[in-house]
Design a protein around this nucleic acid. Structure first.
Lengths: 144, 144
DNA sequence: ATGTATTTTGATAATCATTCTCAATTAGGA
DNA sequence: TCCTAATTGAGAATGATTATCAAAATACAT
């Protein structure tokens, strides 16, 4: 259900913006939505290449950017030089636990932290648009 | 006091690591510690260039990295492609409010948020090494 | 279905901050 | 002072992303 919904949202975005629905965009959308949540451009490109060797890297980059614009994906940079995208439904938000050992990314959500963030922003007169919270360390497996 | 202490920490680091104290490193250290907290490599380089035109960009990059390694500075990337460094004393930590309008960076600290982060990490079996919390939005001035 | 204006694509070049290379210079201990 | 290893500056290299542009594909009106 979720997945088809996201595809729908993207297709509506395409129409609304006067863009065109193309074979490549559909293929990338399909791969993206059926992949694990956190994919780097490079990873997705390699995966795609196996089945669709003619799709160019630039197209993958462009299309992922469109996903972000349409609201079905979120662009992330963890500081390793790679841009990652995760697919999210509107309104969803979560933060990340990044393992510096194996690169695993876990997600979490904490309502109280979000509230505290809002109040911090408030006390500084800031109008928050988005936030990023990342915890770096070793996951349970890498600690051993 | 703070400033001389940081310089001292860096000089000790240089000795401890078997590195050498050079004219360039002292100059950059001096500029860095007397600058505003959040400086991009480019900004610092330009500032430096006015008085010391012979110092190369690569040297500034390398030296700032050393500051980070020595513990007197912290490397930050806010996603605009620029690497920034802020000088910090050991143990100090704070998070950032980044204005997407004018680029101003404000700092804050919130003990409760830190505690909640620790408990989140704990419940996932993570051993936290560091964290990054950034709130993006419009500052009081840009809201108007 | 066909034409047409517009968008999209793929390949390649360009970008841009940072890092690397390397010969020349410099620091610091013997 | 001498010697060895580290450091420097200039320019080349890197690497992910973005821009360019001719060719191909799409949407829509005819």
């Amino acid at each position: 259900m979720k997945r088809e919904k996201k595809a729908e949202v993207f297709r509506e975005f395409i129409v609304r913006e006067g863009l065109k629905s193309t074979r490549q965009r559909e293929i990338i959308l399909d791969f993206f939505l059926s992949s694990k949540r956190h994919m780097s451009v490079e990873e997705l490109y390699r995966k795609l290449r196996a089945r669709h060797p003619s799709i160019g890297y630039a197209t993958v980059c462009r299309t992922l950017k469109l996903f972000a614009q349409s609201g079905i994906a979120h662009e992330m940079r963890f500081g390793d030089g790679q841009t990652r995208y995760e697919h999210i439904a509107e309104g969803e938000h979560h933060d990340h636990l990044v393992c510096t050992g194996c690169g695993t990314i876990a997600e979490f959500e904490n309502k109280t932290i979000e509230e505290l963030q809002a109040s911090v922003a408030d006390s500084h007169g800031f109008l928050i648009h988005s936030h990023k919270l990342e915890l770096y360390g070793l996951c349970a497996r890498c600690r051993k």
